[in-house]
Design a protein around this nucleic acid. Sequence first.
DNA 1: ATTTTTAAGATCGTGTACAATCTGATCTCA
DNA 2: TGAGATCAGATTGTACACGATCTTAAAAAT
Lengths: 241, 241
Amino acid sequence: MTKEAGKPAREADKAADKAKGSKARAVADALTLAVHEHRLAPGLKLNEDEVGEIFGVGRTIVRSALQMLAHDQLVTIEPNRGAFVAEPSIREAREVFEARALLEPRTARSAAERITPQDVATLRAHNAAEHAALDRGDFGMAVRLSGEFHIELARIADQSTIAEFIAQLIARSSLVVALYWRRPKAMCETHAHEALLTALEQGDGATAEELMKGHLLDLLSSLDLRETPAAPRTLRDALRP
Amino acid sequence: MTKEAGKPAREADKAADKAKGSKARAVADALTLAVHEHRLAPGLKLNEDEVGEIFGVGRTIVRSALQMLAHDQLVTIEPNRGAFVAEPSIREAREVFEARALLEPRTARSAAERITPQDVATLRAHNAAEHAALDRGDFGMAVRLSGEFHIELARIADQSTIAEFIAQLIARSSLVVALYWRRPKAMCETHAHEALLTALEQGDGATAEELMKGHLLDLLSSLDLRETPAAPRTLRDALRP
DNA sequence: ATTTTTAAGATCGTGTACAATCTGATCTCA
DNA sequence: TGAGATCAGATTGTACACGATCTTAAAAAT
């Protein structure tokens, strides 16, 4: 009996599951969450020793986690310089939304065809939480929940490969929003999500696809992606705050 | 100052080849290439010490490279067990082609709108090399070149984010082909590529999009993705669905 | 005073050693 | 003989130390 008998509750084991997967994954997930909630500003330097100290792990773990994030383009690793929270260029920002425009509308249609009442309940809960966060003024949490809505949709569509891509794009979108957000008139977003939700609930795939397409265009148009003059955006300047 | 006299010796060639990326990237690229050429069979165990010995690097580098490949789902890392060349399930195989169907046709259209004579020349060279490899009976090289055709197309479309996704999907497609290929009547592929090339050369985006869509469907239909594959690859896979 | 040089400090890249874990085989007992 | 326990070998997970490289800033020379 070297091992505990059986496997206990699945939901309660979530934390243990991550710890078991690997500490590096746990650190990477924590950092990703922080990016989703806009708690890590683009350009911030992520010192390996410092991060390791915070999470109580060695530098090896931190390095592994940072490499994961670098692969998702959430951080950029400059050789012999260190890791920094990524600062997506305007071009990259456009590319991210271009990719989302290719993936998400069709995925929303698929989701509409397979959605279950349970899924609807989950999404409604997400929506409610997002509203609550906005009313509370917790913009970070609102951005995170808004992104999770899209990720959950991809998961419902039962296409884990595409869902993985979308998750990456959502994370990068959080950085894009942090950099190029125009005005806090984002409230339309939650309404867009609600309209989507009703279409999904009725199994109306075509409408869901169109709504998602429009939603992404709205999001894109709410950004300020004009070319910055002379681009004085060096890392040194970015680190000045 | 005298950098050349420092420590060139045996690593000079590799340093010149991948001067920018680290050694880990070089190892990862080499392994990826081997997968593309069907030189690494799915399910093969990649012993860290062994790989390190082959490439003349330490286990740290190998570990980093394997983590990169694991992120691309080219290898699966089982905790305390090691790394194995991935064996995509039938479901994963379908998902890969589903994702390609979403990304590549529209990307082909974009490529047609931006393609330059230089790009056409490059693609023609690729095509010729693919034909030559097939005539020579070098199927591994043919598969690799066929994949690179698609990747190059995405690059021409000037959407590096989407190109990155497609590159991942192509790599996984190589594994899928290795596992589920039906018959060596793949010659249609090269003709499909040639038809695409002419459409691209004429800037006919709509035709290119349609051709790509059909090409991907042909590819998918040339696989044997029946739910009951007579070949449960390994006992481990059979026991761990 | 400005520019170049130089040195110090800090950070990252890599190899190596040790601990944890798994696999496979041997041994014991019914 | 067969099932279960135990142990040796091997492999991965992690921490740590040393060397390489970059940044920073002071100091010296023009």
